[in-house]
């Protein structure tokens, strides 16, 4: 890693300087990946709780009758799109294209909000139309806590990205903050891949016709 002596002159050099570690990976990024490895266990535990109770009591409810796969499928598209925009935000931040960062981050947050609204609507719909609550039965418990925890992750991500969006409008924003946006982006993508798993194992598999 060649370090530039006057970091402030070149936005790229400031970012390169952060890589002057034993491995060439920035500290924040490494810590984030360690956190994501840990978060796999968080969601692993939640997902297994849900699946275990689906296995123990296959007939406790008929999720097909409750779920709205069109809505959930739409939510999945939305979250995937937000991930795409997030990747573009990071790319723009590395280019030093501040306008791009703002637009793409704004788009990411917008799609994230749509996803959250979808989830709020879904929960509301389940509670009012089907009477499925946390304490209806064990399916309600595991389903709401699993998807709710994911929703909390999305909400935290929106707050995090939103803070960066505001920050880009201040004079404190500097080129090397591209790394911070990248790290926030890693978190956002992780929330997306968790949804990819939840979408499949919680929603889609319920629709598989159980013919032999």
């Amino acid at each position: 890693m060649s370090a530039h002596s006057h970091a402030a002159d070149d936005p790229h050099a400031a970012l390169e300087a952060l890589k002057e570690t034993s491995t060439g990976i920035e500290n924040k990024k490494l810590a984030m990946w360690a956190f994501l490895a840990s978060d796999c266990m968080f969601f692993g535990t939640l997902i297994s709780t849900h699946l275990i109770y689906r296995k123990i009591y296959p007939d406790i409810v008929d999720p097909k009758a409750i779920f709205d796969i069109e809505l959930t499928g739409f939510s999945s598209f939305i979250l995937l799109m937000s991930s795409f925009l997030m990747a573009l935000s990071v790319s723009a931040a590395h280019k030093g294209n501040i306008k791009g960062v703002r637009w793409f981050l704004g788009g990411t947050i917008f799609f994230g909000l749509i996803f959250l609204c979808g989830q709020v609507y879904e929960f509301h719909h389940f509670v009012t139309d089907f009477g499925l609550t946390l304490s209806s039965n064990v399916f309600g418990s595991t389903f709401y806590v699993l998807t709710g925890t994911h929703g909390v992750h999305v909400a935290l991500g929106i707050i995090w990205l939103g803070s960066w969006l505001v920050y880009t409008f201040t004079d404190r924003y500097k080129a090397e903050h591209a790394l911070d946006i990248e790290v926030a982006g890693l978190y956002w993508h992780f929330v997306d891949i968790v949804w990819i798993v939840i979408f499949t194992v919680v929603y889609l598999v319920e629709y598989v016709p159980f013919l032999t």
């Binding site: 491995t23 990976i25 490494l30 990946w33 490895a37 840990s38 969601f43």
Partner: peptide
Amino acid sequence: LCTILFMIGMVIAGGTVTALM
């Protein structure tokens, strides 16, 4: 290293979920 780090978490989480099932 980033991939390895993440895969450690994925493998242990995946193994635990599978065993629990």
